[in-house]
Nucleic acid binder design. Sequence first.
DNA 1: ATAGGGTTAG
Length: 801
Amino acid sequence: MRRVTSFRVFSPTPSGDGRVIPRWLRLRCFSAAAAVPLPEVPESLGSLATEEPEKKKEKKKRRRRLTKGSTSSSASGYSETAEIVRWNKVITGHMRWGRCEEASQAFDAMPRRTTVSWNAMLSGYITNDRFELALHVFRRMPHRDLVSWNTMISGFVRNGDLSSARRLFDEMPDRDIVSWNAMISAYAQYGQVDAAREMFDRAPVKNAITWNGLLAAYVQNGRLEAARKLFDSSPEWETVSWNAMLAGYVHRRRLEEARELFDRMPRRDVVSWNTMVSGYAQAGELGVARLLFDRAPTKDVFTWTAMLSGYAQNGMLEEARRVFDKMPEKNEVSWNAMIAGYVQHCRMEQAMELFGVMPCRNISSWNTMITGYAQNGELSHARKLFDEMPRRDSISWAAMIAGHSQSGLSEEALGLFIEMGRLGERLNRSAYTCALSTCADISALECGRQVHGRLVKAGYAAGCFVGNALLAMYCKCGSIDEAYDAFMEMPAKDVVTWNTMIAGFARHGFGREALEVFDWMLDLHTRPDDVTLVGVLSACGHAGLVEKGIGCFYAMERDFGITPKPQHYTCMIDLLGRAGRLGEAQVLMQSMPFEPDATMWGALLGASRIHGDTELGESAARRIFEMEPENSGMYVLLSNLYAAAGKWADVGRMRVMMRDKGVRKVPGFSWIEVQNVVHTFSVGDAAHPQKEEIYAFLEDLDRRLKKAGHVSVTKTVLHDVEEEEKEQMLKYHSERLAVAFGILRVPRGRPIRVIKNLRVCEDCHSAIKYISAMEGRLIILRDSNRFHHFSGGSCSCGDYW
DNA sequence: ATAGGGTTAG
């Protein structure tokens, strides 16, 4: 027995939902040989390809014309001598290159400062993300003109503080069209479409930018139909707005509509072409993308990079490399796209080679490499780069944390998270999400609570993404109450939120609550998806609601348009089998449109054990052994079945079979967290400092258990995977030790939470039920596939698991 | 010196 001051993990630690999909698997991985669709020649393209790239100077002139009359800028009251103008140019020059210090020195050295100088400092600090300094300048400046106010508004917006931006807008003595436009696009950017609309309606003057702001509000927030309606309502849009509309369709993969629009455009600029090229490239239609690419009358870095990354992401690395080598100019994005292409297809040597010669590495380049190594499990390489890089941002940390967590090194992952917070690194949403899912993986409830507290302080609690992670963390850490609280507090719930809550209740054995949440979801007109139905069906199974489950199963296709997947059939086999309707379960299995897999046979085997159908159990087990000969859990399940039927010879045979096949038994462990220390126990563990106390207590418990009517379920059965031992000191399974320790150390009135890496054995399950009644304690046990809440002599699993 | 569209990393 070890006492550890940090979190100890035994792999494989099952994740709460039983399956861990490594994030790198989700990366797009198409084989390089995948057929490329033949370029389909868009007829309408040829004739209309007249271009009129707007010159920068013209644009500027245009803009000046637009704003003229509505603004009275440079109302400084000072005449600007040529010398002052020169100084102001020096300031903006420094600021453009991020040299805030030098700009500040120039500002101080000037003989005289005009409002333009102050404004240059203000906007310089803002574009360089020195928000505090900008605010300081704004407060100190002797005279503010419209530009100062507008600049400060954009500063607040950039800093994510919409309400302050709005306050400034309301407070400013005078507003011009720029102020209105700034607010409209700010609301658009932060998803507040209605507020953007309101601003638009209230704006006393409107120009093309105003209109475009409203259009962007719709497009960027996925309200394409509204955007299109607006777009169609006016015949005159600038190319910028055409492009925004185009991008909206492309983003949603609605390429036909994008193309229809593109073909009709009166003028196309390089952005229009880029949007289309990248749209087709991202959709995997590289033939069409290439065709457009070849036809584009002007190409800039974006065009080339879009084409390059299209090839790279679809695994066509040679083509990507050809584009890369031919590019007339490359920026860091082009390099990063090429490197990312290699990384995503596990060609780390080539990625590294490119990274090594890259002239303009930025943080992203480092992050891409780190992510690549981390996702390939080469954590030492990742760490080396991480330590070497000149600056780290939250993405670098997140890549390291996620990498460790995906490689099963949850403890190190959490350690990194803590280190990150200690270094004062600004934690972003993804860092919190990452930390929460790590806590969930190792059932670190206390740590999860601390992360929760910190993210509330950081103001991230209302986010859907973080909220879902929080909810999942509490579910997986066995605190269904806190999960429910988190669920209730979420202002916006998406499908994932509902799914997580439903599955959480189901896994904890609270089927009825799960179904209530499901009904509530339907009431609110949230459309369930296939994951929802897995949760619902398993909830029905756990609550013994057979008819309801059957009803849902048949309703899913009819009412929700969801075709049942293998997981749904597994739930149904489990549900029917548990209810003793083994025949129906078999019929269902035969009528499925796919072959039964090992988990389905496993469900059938489990049901056979409960209902004592040795023959069916045997045949199910045979199929499992064929498919997964190393699955030790199934041998155990079958032995238990034999034992229940009194077939001791067969139990012996199973032991021999396991030995002959070399099936390795996974050692069983249980652990419990008491006052931030995780105590781990193995079977018959005798190394704990308080072992005398624990064993004495267990002996006493044993006596009282017998008196209360607990009969040892097994003596001969091959328990779980923990080997049966005869010695007195070794007779207790790890979960029993952990529970005993919990009763001794966890304050009365608080639940005792124990985690086990394998399934709980039948004898312990029965004993813990009695213990919960005798001691008047709530005991929550997470085993390898579900949660058991023991209280008052019964368990939330209803004795079936 | 302030407001609008397109590419990459997480």
